[in-house]
Design a protein around this nucleic acid. Structure first.
Lengths: 156, 156
DNA sequence: GTTGAAACACGGAACCC
DNA sequence: GGGTTCCGTGTTTCAAC
């Protein structure tokens, strides 16, 4: 990736704006303007600057998977055969909707993924019928998240 | 957590609305209305229903940590002494801003965390000077993410 | 940085099917 | 229950200062 600037100047006002929008992306800009004490147009200009700089890469509506019945989160370390081309495995993992994250990692495994399933049975299915079926996957290690205590973005 | 309904009915229109807002929380509702082909007020009503149901738990502005120089992501498995009360360790982890996620997990470790650092030196500091200093932490295993290939929410 | 103004979006009320 | 239109209020997004 390439950005306009690898060194972006962010002053205290920028930080305040970002902090407000990081916790609620739909917060009206005018409301933030009133709280900070500058005009809405000024915030608008700063936001445009932050967007073109690449720092703000968009906004997401966060949904609560528990309401949909997704209560079982797990991390799975995947061992791949040496012969297997890793990108091919990632392409297959991408097709599995339960896979939320996928990392190439140092250490024991080739790949570490995060999956979200409805229950243990669902997880079992994803493991045996989806992940283990991918060509090149030799072995997996599963760590079920019993309870997620922290979930946040980097602080500004 | 308790919700109005554990079984929420979500029809095709709801799904479309959610999908639009999941990729851009600031997308104007009227714009979505035009694309779907119903009135803005109808979308507004559906959104209120989805919000009270607990499914939409808010919106977040996503920032790109790379622009701030945070390029090293890692997962760290933490072994805790049996004597240690885990919640106390989590409280200490919460104070470390580089810690983005924290899970109690099944398997080898007591806790699995995700950290985001500027570089390996920074990660080293967090490991040795922050995490290892927490009372009850006996040993850690670190897996550096060389490349994150997938990062998404659950599909609707 | 500000103001001002036009265009637009939001969110309620009243209503229809 | 859903959907619609109408409308006052508030917000976004310009340009000009």
């Amino acid at each position: 990736m390439k950005f306009d600037n690898d060194r972006i100047k962010i002053d205290g006002i920028d930080k305040k704006i970002i902090r407000y929008l990081m916790q609620d992306a739909r917060k009206p800009i005018l409301e933030i303007a009133r709280k900070i004490g500058i005009s809405g147009a000024a915030i608008h200009q700063r936001l445009r600057k932050l967007e073109t700089s690449g720092l703000m890469s968009g906004s997401k509506f966060v949904i609560n998977p528990k309401v949909l019945g997704y209560t079982t989160m797990a991390y799975i370390g995947i061992f791949l055969d040496k012969a297997m081309s890793n990108p091919k495995a990632v392409k297959e993992l991408e097709k599995i909707p339960e896979v939320l994250e996928c990392h190439y990692t140092t250490g024991n495994w080739s790949i570490l993924i995060k999956v979200l399933c409805k229950d243990n049975e669902h997880l079992m299915h994803v493991l045996n019928k989806e992940i283990q079926q991918i060509q090149g996957v030799s072995r997996t290690e599963t760590f079920i998240s019993l309870n997620q205590q922290i979930d946040r973005q980097i602080q500004i």
